[in-house]
């Protein structure tokens, strides 16, 4: 997948990058971070810096003697295959980086969408329960239901664009919303807006219908 770097304006926060480097984010957040980094070299480089801190911690951690010997390890190595080859990068044509494609089980046409009303569709992705991840499909010009947040919500645009009160978010841009935010994003006219969203708390819709939808659709 080529880098869409030049157009990306909204990047991962340092907190998310450090949490991803340290391995402490919930799986659903890891998925959003890995998908963004797949198309953003700026954040890939920033992640490299936080991983370098991890490397420095490893150097500084002290030592605990291993009970297995070098020949034990070579026995394992010799029993399995080795892979001394660089794999050629396969051409990618879809909007999903491999990191995300693995969770969907294919391309855009493999997504099992479920309608949540007003033309908006979603597909929940299988992650551990500490946070949830979903794909959202918002028709061009459609408004997302008004909702507040509990916890943190990450929204990464994969196709199309949306606007909220302050900003425009297009492919590769990530919106990081917290409890204080109460916003009403609108998809731009034109092609449908497809986003990967993750939250560590259920979204809270204001309207009754949305509440019912939330109950049944797990939004």
């Amino acid at each position: 997948m080529t880098s869409d770097m030049s157009q990306i304006k909204h990047h991962l926060s340092d907190e998310l990058l450090m949490g991803y480097a340290a391995g402490t984010l919930p799986e659903a957040f890891n998925l959003v971070v890995a998908t963004h980094i797949s198309i953003c070299d700026e954040c890939r480089a920033r992640l490299g810096a936080y991983e370098a801190v991890g490397g420095a911690v490893l150097e500084d951690v002290g030592t605990t003697d291993m009970s297995s010997t070098l020949s034990d390890v070579f026995d394992i190595i010799d029993a399995g295959g080795t892979e001394f080859r660089a794999e050629p990068a396969a051409p990618k044509s879809d909007i999903f980086p491999d990191a995300l494609r693995d969770y969907i089980g294919g391309d855009l046409d493999s997504v099992k969408w479920r309608s949540v009303g007003m033309g908006v569709k979603q597909a929940i992705l299988p992650t551990s329960r500490s946070a949830s991840a979903r794909l959202l499909y918002i028709p061009g010009g459609a408004q997302m239901p008004d909702h507040g947040h509990r916890g943190t919500e990450l929204t990464l645009v994969l196709q199309g664009a949306f606007k909220d009160e302050d900003d425009r978010f297009a492919r590769g841009d990530i919106e990081i919303a917290t409890e204080a935010d109460h916003h009403t994003p609108v998809a731009e006219e034109g092609e449908p807006c497809i986003c990967l969203a993750a939250t560590d708390a259920p979204l809270k819709f204001d309207g009754m219908i949305a509440r019912i939808a939330q109950k049944f659709a797990r939004i």
């Binding site: 340092d14 998310l16 450090m18 480097a21 391995g23 402490t24 810096a49 801190v53 991890g54």
Partner: peptide, 20 residues
């Protein structure tokens, strides 16, 4: 933070380290 003893919400990314 790197041993995983802090949750992601406890981690402060501003470490004072020169990462630029």
């Amino acid at each position: 933070a790197y041993f995983g003893d802090l949750t992601h919400s406890e981690i402060a990314a501003e470490t004072g380290l020169p990462l630029g």
